[in-house]
């Protein structure tokens, strides 16, 4: 029997949650025993070629590309788990939300008043920014939420193991206590 598959992505995040995933130290050998890694920045696989069991989503959606990736994950993953503050609440990228996209960009690139020499840069290859940063669950259905900034390696490890065993993860308080 083939191993269940795990896919991961980092949308509008800092890769901190992926770092925390790698922080499981020697248990990574066990992880490799448990899962096959599918689409993920860890193996640089860019697309799904089959359905996978678990999708690990870091970061919220700040641009069109994030939305398309997340939608692709929803379509291919049986279970989606939003990991970390950015996926759950928008996190640091969402600090721009109260300001508004136009003001944010024009202040940054053009001192607030664009003119012939100062304007918001544009390139057809840059994904278009959304009007605000959306947490993952506002964009697609999310099955589980793992809070933390980032969640600890232990919490990620426990969560993934439980999901893999087909159980609903019920993490002990100590693993989710941050103050």
């Amino acid at each position: 029997m083939s191993k269940p598959k795990l896919a991961t992505c980092s949308l509008a995040g800092c890769f901190g949650c992926h770092m925390s995933l790698l922080d499981i130290d020697e248990r990574i050998l066990e992880l490799v025993e448990l899962f096959d890694l599918d689409r993920s920045p860890l193996d640089d696989k860019k697309a799904f070629d089959s359905p996978v069991e678990v999708g690990f989503v870091e970061g919220g959606c700040a641009n069109e590309h994030n939305v398309r990736v997340l939608h692709d994950f929803r379509k291919h993953c049986k279970v989606l788990i939003a990991v970390g503050a950015c996926a759950i609440n928008g996190g640091v990228p969402a600090l721009r939300n109260p300001i508004g996209l136009r003001e944010c960009l024009e202040t940054t690139y053009a001192g607030g008043t664009p003119d012939a020499d100062h304007f918001v840069p544009y390139d057809a290859d840059l994904p278009l920014l959304l009007d605000r940063v959306y947490p993952a669950h506002e964009v697609v259905r999310i099955d589980y939420f793992l809070p933390g900034c980032p969640p600890s390696a232990d919490a990620i490890w426990e969560g993934l193991k439980e999901l893999l065993a087909g159980r609903t993860p019920g993490l002990p308080y100590q693993l989710l206590k941050y103050d």
Binding site: E64, V67, L70, H71, R74, K75, L128, L130, D131, R132, Y134, E138, V139, V140, R141
Partner: peptide, 11 residues
């Protein structure tokens, strides 16, 4: 499994 925001409006 659909996207739940109005993407065109958001862009």
């Amino acid at each position: 499994d659909d996207v739940r925001i109005d993407l065109q409006a958001a862009l």
